[in-house]
Write a protein that binds this DNA or RNA. Structure first.
Lengths: 195, 195
DNA sequence: GTAGATTGTTGCACCAAGTGCAAGAATGCG
DNA sequence: CGCATTCTTGCACTTGGTGCAACAATCTAC
């Protein structure tokens, strides 16, 4: 099943990983916004132009393939039992996100970056907007709303609210240095919304 | 009460209004992102450099003083009866937003701009992040959560969810061309969250 | 009205993120 | 080995945005 990637593909991935590693080093040291693409390229031993050959933007270094991750969340959501409630289903779909990216330590570093780099925060929120459209149709069904061409605003609001709970939970988890339980934080946040 | 502004202040405001008007004309015609600052400056009969003397950024043309508006929402929220529920209080505080900006027609144009200009959407979401911090303390009290130094993540999630409902409602209202009732849309969205 | 301080306007140079293009170097593959 | 493909790079350009300094306009006090 695992098609062996060509040598070119393998070296390409290796270079990508090297650039990303060099960038993360700089980001954690000087912050995301204070690090320029020129510095990253220099640290990775490539030209500025080549950097943009590997990553479409500085944000891409941190964010990964947001479209693919969004798709995986949608798939996880749609794989939940059809009669499961919207809240439960989206909760379980979100849980799958924990395993997709690197180690817990790396996730903490990323969460910290997201937390204090304004441009990253903005991109993060834009990503959630796209996810909103992606997840809304399934949620719309689970909420008992009739299927429509464009997503029902109520379903969109629901997904956005769930993502807001997720963000708040991850944020609080990052601020606690990894001590708090993000799943519990999420559950508490959603519980309070319904009270 | 109304301190007469100096001549300087009055002309400054007049110029600001002129620039904004010229910009809105270009925005509605070519879109926000496709309109450059140079074009706006040229249309307003000033230099590019002077434009940035009046507005800190292109987004400022559309967004107004976000900090001040956020403050007004916070004030409205805190002015609600102390025993009012979080949902009701924030709903009423949001209602005050309708009267602050121009006519309904202008609001529709703005909502449309927000809807299809990615950079504006991003700024809009960043603005809501700041409002989140602003409104969280009061909501935290209304939710019966103990007061803390940094806002409780549950209160932040609550405010973010309410803002998400507001956004969804305004968005759907704009898409309907002003036909739908945004207040009703908001109420339906929040009701569904609690079900 | 005029002198002087304040404020507004503008051009210039600069930074940072991107993008398109085309030349040249490196490299995988037959 | 040679050829075609791909990688890398430099260069010029766009767009938003900032700091600086010269110059013009205007307000104020005498």
């Amino acid at each position: 099943m695992a098609e062996t990637p060509s040598l070119r593909e393998r070296t390409r991935r290796a270079v990508r990983a090297e650039i990303a590693a060099a960038a993360m080093r700089l980001f954690t040291e000087h912050g995301f916004d204070a690090t320029t693409v020129d510095q990253i390229a220099a640290a990775a031993g490539i030209s500025r132009r080549s950097f943009f050959h590997y990553f479409g933007s500085k944000e891409d270094l941190v964010m990964g393939d947001t479209a693919a991750i969004g798709e995986s969340v949608r798939a996880a959501l749609e794989a939940r039992p059809a009669d499961e409630s919207a809240w439960t289903a989206i909760r379980e779909a979100f849980l799958g996100l924990r395993s997709t990216h690197g180690s817990v330590k790396e996730q903490l570093v990323l969460a910290r970056l997201y937390h204090d780099a304004p441009t990253l925060r903005a991109r993060h929120l834009e990503k959630h907007l796209r996810w909103q459209e992606l997840l809304a149709p399934d949620i719309q069904r689970r909420l008992g709303l009739p299927a429509t061409e464009a997503p029902d605003p109520r379903a969109r609001a629901f997904v956005a609210a769930a993502l807001a709970c997720l963000d708040a939970a991850v944020d609080a988890w990052a601020e606690s240095g990894g001590a708090a339980d993000p799943v519990q934080l999420f559950d508490e946040a959603t519980a309070l919304l319904r009270a």
